[in-house]
């Protein structure tokens, strides 16, 4: 039976990992390659590297990080942040990443999804969606871009259906409202999107305890759950979280 995935997200700026609270006030917490190896040994199912490097001249550092990670860990990983063109995608895929994640760039130019899917296969193309509650939208949720700062005129549910039809292989669904709160994933949003599309949905934003992961799998119908500060800062291990999930009858790889 297909297992639920635990994905650890590493935010990387200028080649160093950080973890942001509500996307603000990032603090440096380490070397991404070493951290990736640690989580690999703990049995993480997948990793995501999110490049938040601001200056374009330092973007090459990320490719170097991707290459080093690919040489040492033998599980799938994806790279997002600052990917806008087919050329950007090609660089990270050739460096050894399985998947690339597009977010704001896909909102501004949805064709990048279909172009990416036809060049690299849809399994390579992940669309990251930053979502905030918005009573003015039909589904009650709207899309925001630029790291959660700018709302755009897109309903979250309609956008999810659209990215699927354009050839996305997976959606990473990030709740801006829950992100950094450690109070749990946005279950209603996750359930709506995950049950509404035919591609895997990764829940993101809000995880603070292993119980939150149980909830997002059981009540939110998520295919995978993204975690960050729980393991980077709060002392949980991937092994410990997985053992807890197993006891709660979540199908998980131990």
């Amino acid at each position: 039976m297909l297992q639920k995935r635990i994905i650890v997200c590493l935010d990387v700026r200028d080649g160093k990992t950080t973890k942001g609270i509500k996307f603000k006030g990032n603090i440096d917490i380490g070397d991404p390659v070493r951290m990736a190896e640690d989580y690999y040994r703990q049995g993480v199912d997948e990793l995501v590297f999110y490049d938040i490097t601001a200056s374009s001249e330092k973007r090459g550092i990320m490719i170097d990080v991707v290459q080093k990670v690919a040489e040492k860990i033998f599980i799938p990983f994806s790279v997002g942040g600052g990917i806008r063109t087919l050329e950007d995608m090609k660089k990270v895929i050739l460096a050894g990443a399985e998947k690339v994640s597009v977010n704001s760039a896909a909102v501004l130019d949805p064709d990048i999804i279909s172009q990416g899917a036809s060049h690299f296969g849809k399994q390579c193309i992940v669309v990251g969606m930053d979502v905030a509650a918005d009573k003015g939208k039909p589904s009650g949720y709207g899309i925001v871009i630029n790291g959660g700062r700018t709302p755009v005129d897109l309903d979250a549910f309609e956008w999810a259906k659209k990215v699927e039809s354009l050839g996305a292989g997976e959606i990473v669904l990030n709740s801006i409202d829950a992100d950094g709160t450690k109070e749990g994933y946005e279950l209603q949003l996750t359930k709506m999107i995950s049950e509404g599309v035919g591609i895997p949905v990764v829940a993101s934003g809000g995880a603070g305890t292993p119980r939150h992961l149980v909830d997002v799998f059981k009540k939110g119908s998520a295919d995978a759950a993204l975690i960050a500060s729980m393991v980077h800062i709060d002392g949980y291990t991937v092994e410990g979280i997985k053992e807890f999930l197993k006891k709660e009858d979540i199908p998980i790889r131990l």
């Binding site: 039976m1 297909l2 297992q3 639920k4 995935r5 199912d45 599980i75 799938p76 849809k122 399994q123 292989g169 997976e170 599309v197 035919g198 591609i199 895997p200 295919d223 995978a224 790889r253």
Partner: peptide, 30 residues
Amino acid sequence: LKIPHMGWNQVKQQGKHYIFKDVPDSASFY
């Protein structure tokens, strides 16, 4: 089903092929 079939799933071995030597039955693969 969600398609693609993406993630870790169990591989139940039939017979004992040499490529599964020292690999537990029903271990998960990507």
